[in-house]
Amino acid sequence: MKNLLDPRTKIIIAMFFTILVVASRTLSWLLPQWGVLIVLVVAIGKGRAYARWLRLSLPMALFFGAVTWWTADWKTGLMAALALLNLVSVFFVFFSTTTPEDLGNSLVKAGLPYPVAFVFSTSLQFVPVIGRKAKNVLDAQRARGIPLEPGWSALRHYPAFLGPLLIQAFQLAEELAAAMEARGFGRPGRTFYRDYRMGPTDWLAVAITFLLLTACLILQRM
């Protein structure tokens, strides 16, 4: 499933879906779209992860809807919330079927500078590393009586948190840079281990989704 389609194909399909969501103005269009997305999620076996993820995303969509409701009317608000939810769900499906590395590397073939793709595909690796360091700093400071529980009181002690964390983070960056350099990061003529090529399946998928998109758009306008 994961490697059925080239990452670029998936981007194109995701873009089509985005256009469709953005062009939809009624609940009778937006709700089925969400339905399709949920079916997709279940089909790729990410139902559980999606449920967890919804818990985080739903409040955001609702907040956004509320703001819109407040400045316009409730119908627009509801639609805005649903549209946002659909959009970020497209994101979710896309990223649960594509590793950042595949995406980054295939985009290099499409002209993205390699260092940018590298940042994109590598950053996710270092989120837990920084998270662990942050936790260690909090623990170390709290252990000697410097209060760093979240909230206003922590603000006064911010240097105690940010200081050690940033210094370590920048040392990490230096070490990472040295390691990258020592493995030939800057050397021209890089090849890619994984082959990214748009095959017949890819073109077929693009064509089919394109037709579907056009059909939906025409139907909507009728």
């Binding site: 360091k133 623990d139 400071q141 050690p164």
Partner: peptide
């Protein structure tokens, strides 16, 4: 703790 860098500010 193990890593003293976690606390210097």
């Amino acid at each position: 703790f193990q890593n003293p860098n976690s606390q210097f500010f």
